[in-house]
Design a protein around this nucleic acid. Structure first.
Length: 214
DNA sequence: ATACAGAGGTGTTCC
DNA sequence: TGGAACACCTCTGTA
């Protein structure tokens, strides 16, 4: 237990610089264009049960050729090669695009930053963006430099939380209530080993996959 | 060749 | 009303 934790802390020291570099890139998002923010949101809609790299490749293509902003549902779906549940996700992207558009212009930054806390933004996103639950709403916020204290509880993180005995088992279904409970425990652990939440997420992820992506 | 787990889950339905 | 079960149903790496 203590042995495992110190191994993790050592690993953190090795990877700290790379992790910090990645987080800095997220923090720069405040100056992104609306189009770039929407691309990130679309990416997060795509990632469930799909490979992050495949999703990002697809979204990059859609972003660069403009289909993401002007294309119809079928055109978007056509580009979501390798993305699971692409029919549904293309629909969610269109719905999100309509939701965030005012006078034919995307307004994401302004609406997102009008909330008083990251927790409230997350609630709002999970409620209003189809395809977003607690996990993907947190993922999106982290990727645009917000929600530093929020947990992104995917299967990798849950496995690691189990490994480090932060939780005693992996829940079969992860409802909002359980999500918040586990997030709270992860925060305690984060305090205990003195590694920030955002760093811990990337650290766990790199421990499993060997790299730091998104 | 063929099978099968695994990929940063969420919406809807039903009780 | 909260929560479990089911629907969604592609592609790749590995044995």
């Amino acid at each position: 237990m203590i042995e495992k934790n110190s191994t993790l802390i050592n690993s953190y020291q090795e990877k700290k610089e790379a992790i910090r570099t990645r987080l800095k890139e997220f923090e720069n998002a405040y100056r992104w264009s609306e189009e770039r923010l929407f691309a990130e949101l679309s990416f997060c809609i795509c990632t469930p049960q799909s490979k992050a790299k495949t999703c990002w490749k697809a979204i990059s293509t859609l972003m660069n050729n403009g289909t993401l902003y002007y294309g119809d549902e079928e055109q978007i779906r056509h580009s979501l090669v390798g993305v699971r549940f692409s029919v549904n996700k293309a629909r969610y992207i269109i719905e999100a695009r309509n939701f965030f558009q005012k006078d034919n212009k995307l307004q994401i930054n302004e609406r997102i930053r009008s909330f008083k806390s990251d927790q409230v933004i997350r609630e709002w996103l999970a409620k209003n963006v189809k395809g977003f639950g607690m996990k993907e709403a947190s993922h999106f916020l982290r990727n645009i430099g917000l929600g530093k204290e929020l947990a992104i509880l995917d299967r990798h993180i849950l496995r690691n939380l189990l490994k480090f005995e932060v939780i005693s088992d992996i829940p079969k279904t992860l409802g909002k209530k359980t999500y918040l409970q586990i997030e709270s425990k992860m925060k305690e652990f984060s305090n205990k080993i003195d590694i920030p939440m955002s760093d811990l997420d990337l650290l766990f992820w790199s421990e499993e996959t060997g790299e730091i992506f998104k």
